[in-house]
Design a protein around this nucleic acid. Structure first.
Length: 552
RNA sequence: GCCCUCAUCGUCUAGAGGCCUAGGACACGGGCUUUUCACGCCUGUAACUGGGGUUCGAAUCCCCAUGAGGGCACCA
């Protein structure tokens, strides 16, 4: 087989958003195909009529494109016919089903789900594993229940060569006659993958290790149909840092924890106050906390109202959090794969050139958010301004920060300011709001720098120094700033007073750039405003520290 | 419970019998730089799961134990 015949696929089921784990599987398949000059197919496995949705499918396509994982065959590019959705391929499966029955490799079964559950419970009681087999006693008779079709699995050991794990063997007694057509007439996943992979000419299947035990089933199907199976490679899994499985559940879990903390701290056990604040019925929130609902969109809204961040799980989450797709792809590629030579930063092109099944490891990995965060910051620092402008534009499409309104020249100035002090675009978006809106003053910072000692006096002095500057540009600002830095006993102390007055907090980009962008009017009026708002008052007023509003 | 797989710093990994007193990166600690915060630079702590073999020699090969994970659906 010539290497240009290589064809891989990614076959997500459209039952939610594209998960990072899925994205990694997609990436490895994409890399493998590109490495060998082959084709990469995207196929939507929507044989679960209950859980599949078209919005989900659309979202997955969008995420794939955002990640830069283009497909050679699949929805939209697949020739206009919807032949890459399994639900549209029902007619294709039918003849093979008939063939298997005709050849007596498959047979009908009539148990109801309840009966099957009872049989399993019975086996469990006897502490023997349940296997549905054609010759087993007590099978339901025709007409007794819904009709499914099962494949008669072989009775001998099945062994195969996995391209990552090596030889895998499963004894004959372990096999279970799998359902290949459900009672609703739809093929099961097992049947549809085999037919589709064969039909589409897939040569290599790289999939998560959770599919390892499905492989004998698929192999049996290939054998029954007399087809040559593809080559398999099972990828190591990715978990959370605490070794739990990464799932959407992590988001609802984190949201619930935040809500419980909130209820305790704010003494709002019925969430009445919170309900008002975020415009949701208190009952909905209470149900959510009581685990009656498992809605991650709701979790997101609540987290926003509480100003907490939920762990990112889906590709979209990372996009919302301001991660660059290049960084995410790079990071994900490194879990379970190593290009060697201590290399870490790779473009897609470099990954393609270095990719090989040989340097995929066998051990499962953990998703270290801190490292991704660092790597994203590194990508931002290494980017050119123009690339960052594009990234912010993409980011703004899915988020709603004031930075959205910035025109390109402003954006470039902001980007230059924040490039070295942000790790995600969201950090810049959040921290730069004071450029667009009246700052929310951090009371602790105000107290520490303005309402203290000669803070007021210093601020007045600063105002006087700044007032006469025209034109308001860096050249003229710079020497004045130098004088401000020299004020007071401790060099730089006055800078903090100015910083807080203008930005609202004790942390901001360097004053020179910041003041230049803010402009003369805004700067002066904010100082004046601060002077008025934070006039020295008697100590007694700050007796309600819990009411301090939080900056950020 | 049964079946399958895996096992190097806290984390991602390098290591394909001698190059290993185990390398890199994140995180963490210390220091320098500094108008805040970052960035940057220097530097430190930290690992071959345990036990048996094989071999002149094992992180690397074999076996057992232990641990971790996956699978046991008319879900994919």
């Amino acid at each position: 087989m010539g290497s240009d015949d290589i064809k891989t696929r990614f076959a997500p089921s459209p039952t939610g958003f594209l998960h990072v784990g899925g994205a990694r599987t997609a990436l490895f398949n994409w890399l493998f195909a590109r490495r060998h000059g082959g084709k990469f197919v995207l196929r939507i496995e929507d044989t679960d009529q209950v859980r599949s949705t078209t919005q989900s499918a659309a979202g997955i396509l969008q995420d794939m494109l955002w990640l830069g994982l283009n497909w050679d065959e699949g929805p939209v590019v697949g020739g206009g016919k919807n032949q890459y959705f399994q639900s549209m391929r029902l007619a294709i499966y039918q003849p093979y089903l008939e063939q298997l029955i005709r050849e007596d490799r498959a047979y009908e079964a009539f148990e109801t789900p309840q009966q099957l559950a009872a049989m399993r419970a019975e086996s469990e009681k006897r502490k023997t594993p349940f296997r549905y087999r054609r010759n087993m006693p007590g099978r339901a008779k025709k007409g007794e229940g819904p009709v499914v079709i099962r494949l008669e699995m072989p009775w001998e050991e099945i062994r195969f060569q996995d391209n990552i794990l090596g030889e895998i063997r499963v004894a004959g007694v372990e096999h279970d006659d799998i359902v290949i057509r459900k009672s609703d007439g739809f093929p099961t996943y097992h049947f549809a993958v085999v037919i589709d992979d064969h039909d589409m000419g897939i040569t290599h299947v790289l999939r998560a290790q959770e599919h390892l035990m499905n492989t004998p089933k698929h192999l049996a199907l290939y054998a029954a149909l007399n087809w040559r199976p593809p080559l398999y490679a099972h990828l190591p899994l990715v978990f959370n840092m605490d070794n739990s499985k990464m799932s959407k559940r992590d988001k609802t879990k984190a949201a619930r924890a935040a809500l419980q903390l909130y209820a305790r701290q704010r003494q709002d056990p019925t969430f009445a106050q919170l309900a008002v604040r975020c415009g949701l019925p208190a009952g909905v929130i209470a149900d959510f906390v009581a685990r009656k609902t498992e809605d991650s969109t709701l979790a997101g809204k609540l987290a926003e109202a509480l100003d907490v961040e939920l762990p990112e799980i889906d590709v979209q989450d990372f996009r919302h959090s301001g991660y660059l797709s290049d960084a995410l792809v790079n990071f994900i590629a490194l879990i379970g794969w190593s290009p060697g030579q201590n290399r870490e930063f790779l473009t897609r092109r470099e990954m393609i050139d270095l990719f090989s099944l040989e340097n995929i490891g066998k051990t499962s990995g953990r998703f270290d958010r801190k490292k991704l965060h660092w790597m994203n910051g590194e990508y931002i620092r290494r980017s050119r301004l123009q690339e960052l402008v594009a990234a912010v534009e993409s980011f703004s499409q899915v988020t709603d920060y004031p930075i959205k309104q910035a025109d390109e020249p402003t954006l470039r100035v902001l980007l230059a300011m924040y490039q070295e002090r942000m790790a995600t675009l969201a950090e810049m978006a959040r921290n730069s709001t004071f450029f667009f809106c009246t700052p929310r003053y951090d009371q602790a910072a105000v107290k520490k720098y303005i309402q203290t000692g000669d803070g007021q006096a210093i601020l007045e002095r600063i105002l006087e120094l700044l007032k006469p500057i025209t034109p308001w540009d860096k050249e003229l600002l710079s020497p004045v700033l130098e004088r401000i830095l020299a004020m007071g006993e401790k060099r730089g102390a006055a800078a903090q007073v100015l910083r807080v007055a203008v930005s609202g907090g004790a942390v901001s980009p360097p004053l020179l750039e910041m003041l230049a962008l803010l402009g003369r009017d805004t700067t002066l009026s904010r100082i004046q405003q601060a002077l008025g708002m934070f006039a020295p008052v008697e100590k007694t007023t700050d007796s309600q520290p819990w009411k301090r509003d939080k900056m950020e």
